[in-house]
């Protein structure tokens, strides 16, 4: 009986620590991304980017402020402490485990996270969800979960985010300018 009680206490403590660490991650704006190593072999194309504050600082030193693309990047990452991207493209439909994506989505139900936009395109079978972490009326984290039958992307940006600057990335990095798209329609 005593041993059972001790085991229960140990399990409860473990569970509490696990939840606390996950909550700490989420509170910082940094999500605990699953280990997608097994998907790298399955995917026809994969992008894994992990840029913490130190690497971001290093990257900034190699950006040329006189280059428009680099200048936009410098502006966009001001106040950002980390960028984490996982993007996988497959040759077959739904070759990725939905449970992993759900695990990330679950973290976004933590206090502070708000869903900004949810786009569901039945035609293109595309689903894009944008979440922001609001702390003291400031966006301190951004999460994007985008899924298609043959592709899924998770973006997590940590730090003070200026959505306007991110929006200004349109026209840069090969992203078409929205106004031009509207004129075409």
């Amino acid at each position: 009986m005593n041993a059972l009680f001790k085991h229960s206490i140990a399990i409860l403590c473990g569970a509490f620590l696990l939840c606390a660490s996950a909550a700490t991650f989420a509170a910082n704006g940094q999500l605990k991304l699953p280990n997608f190593d097994s998907l790298t072999d399955k995917a026809s194309e994969s992008v894994t980017i992990t840029l913490d504050a130190a690497l971001l600082g290093m990257a900034t030193r190699f950006l040329d402020a006189s280059d428009p693309e680099d200048a936009a990047a410098i502006e966009a990452i001001k106040g950002i402490k980390g960028i984490y991207v996982r993007k996988y493209t497959f040759d077959d439909d739904f070759a990725y485990p939905k449970s992993d994506v759900d695990m990330v989505r679950k973290q976004l139900s933590a206090p502070g996270w708000q869903q900004l936009v949810q786009v569901k395109s039945r035609k293109e079978q595309q689903n894009v969800e944008i979440y922001i972490l609001v702390e003291q009326e400031r966006a301190n984290g951004l999460a994007i979960i985008a899924s298609q039958p043959r592709e899924f992307t998770i973006v997590n940006i940590v730090g003070s985010i200026d959505m306007r600057k991110l929006h200004e990335l349109e026209g840069q990095f090969g992203i078409p300018k929205l106004e031009l798209e509207q004129k075409k329609q």
Partner: peptide
């Protein structure tokens, strides 16, 4: 790191663009 940063911003911008559109 610079290459990764630009790639990360490209992916982010691409997905934001889908939502904006």
């Amino acid at each position: 790191a610079r290459r990764q940063l630009l790639e990360a911003l490209r992916v982010t911008g691409e997905k934001l663009d889908v939502a904006y559109q």
